[in-house]
Simulated assay, not measured.
Amino acid sequence: MKDLMGMMKQAKAMQEKMQGLQEEIGNITATGESGGGLVRVTLNGRSELTALSIDPSLAKPEEKDILEDLLIAAHAEAKRRLEHEIQEKTQALTAGLQLPGGLKLPF
C-alpha cells in the first residue's frame, strides 16, 4: 500500500511538471530564415505564426513564385527549430523515467 501511495505522489508530481512544461513550451519562439535572410518567419510553441518579415526587394509581381518558395522554406526551418527545442525540454523533464519507446510528450 505504501508503494501505491508513493506511485500516486510521483504521478501527481509528474503531472504538475508536465503542466509547467506545456506553459513553458507555449512561450518558446523559433525563427526560420530563407533566401539569405530575405524572408523570416517566427513561430510560437503552439506552432502559430507570430511574425513575418519580407525584404521589400521581393515585393514584385515577377518575384511571386520565389517569395512563395522562400516563405515555405522559412516556415519549415522555424518549425524544425521549434520541434528541436521542445524535444530538448521534454527530454530534460523526463530524464530517468522509464517511458515506452515512441511515446511523444507533451501529449
Rank of each mutant, 00 (worst) to 15 (best):
N27V: 00
R80I: 00
L52R: 05
I54T: 01
F107H: 14
E63A: 12
E48H: 07
E23S: 11
L99V: 14
M14C: 12
T42G: 05
Q98V: 11
M14F: 15
T94D: 06
A11S: 14
K104Q: 09
L70C: 08
L49W: 04
L38T: 03
G45Q: 00
A13K: 12
R46L: 12
K12S: 13
E24R: 09
S53A: 09
E23R: 04
G37K: 07
L38F: 11
L4K: 15
M8E: 08
L105H: 12
E88F: 06
R46H: 14
E83C: 01
I72P: 10
L52F: 07
L52K: 01
A95P: 07
P56E: 09
E48V: 07
E33M: 12
I72F: 05
M5D: 15
V39K: 00
L105S: 13
G36I: 06
L58C: 05
G6D: 15
K2W: 09
G37Q: 10
I28R: 04
G35C: 02
L49V: 00
Q91T: 13
I72A: 14
E63C: 06
S47R: 04
L43T: 05
Q10Y: 09
L93F: 01
A51N: 11
L49D: 00
G37H: 11
V41L: 02
P61Q: 07
L49P: 01
E24S: 14
G102I: 03
E48G: 10
D65F: 04
G102A: 08
Q10D: 15
G102P: 08
I66M: 07
G101H: 07
K9M: 14
E83I: 01
Q22G: 11
E88L: 12
A30H: 03
R40N: 02
K89W: 04
E16T: 15
T42L: 07
K104P: 00
S34R: 02
L105Y: 08
D69R: 10
L38S: 09
A78L: 02
G101E: 13
K2V: 15
G36S: 08
P61I: 02
Q19G: 09
P56A: 09
K17N: 12
Q19W: 02
E48N: 10
M18Y: 03
Q10P: 07
I66E: 00
A76M: 04
G101P: 14
M7I: 14
E16D: 13
R80H: 04
Q19H: 07
Q98N: 15
L38H: 11
L70S: 04
E16I: 12
L103A: 08
M7R: 15
G102W: 03
A74Q: 02
G32W: 10
E62W: 05
G101V: 15
I72Q: 11
L70A: 03
F107T: 13
T29L: 05
G36M: 02
H75I: 00
R80G: 00
N27P: 00
M14S: 11
L58A: 02
